[in-house]
Amino acid sequence: MEDILNRLDQKFYVQARYVQRPNLAFVTLKKNVAVQAITYLRDVEGFRHLVMISAVDYIEQNMFQLTYILHNYQLHSDIAVRVELDRENPVMDSLHHLWAAAQVYQREIKEMFGIDFPGSPRVDEPMILEGWDNIPPMRKEFDTKKYSEETYFPREGRASCDPVKIMEKKLYRVEAEVKYEIKRVVRDNRNKSADAN
């Protein structure tokens, strides 16, 4: 595995590598060499099986990570190629010409993350979400809970109580009032002194 990674590094410059298990390694490659490197891994190193293509949204770093997992049937090992994309303009070269399976993955990623793969067949056709009019749903900023609350309606008559609040109300109403008032006073003072600094 190390040898393969070293050869890959010589040819394409591996930005980061990480061996998760003896038969699974993650390598980070630059976007512009990724397809070449994947072609190299497929045709020269024998990683003939495209296991899957996936994307991860790192919204904090304003980045999408594409992961291509390739499998070598002789070595029974996987190399996962990671490519980091700018979240503002997520475009990646297509590799539909290498594997027939790739076009489906790319179509799904286009739909779910909005990452474009120009040239990939039918990439703009909706695959799963016919008639979807929101942002690509697998992006982190898409809030499923909020969406469902806005789109659907809850069953009526459902409400839950917080044990703490109910016990305050039922068992120690005055003491709870004391507690919150004192807490408020103490915190006010603390915040004021913090502001003064």
Binding site: Y18, Q20, L24, A80
Partner: peptide, 18 residues
């Protein structure tokens, strides 16, 4: 924090979790 891919042979073929 980490990343992994695990696979198993189902009756339909290779299934995996990334």
């Amino acid at each position: 924090a980490g990343e992994t891919y695990v696979r198993a042979e189902t009756s339909r073929g290779e299934m995996g979790y990334y």
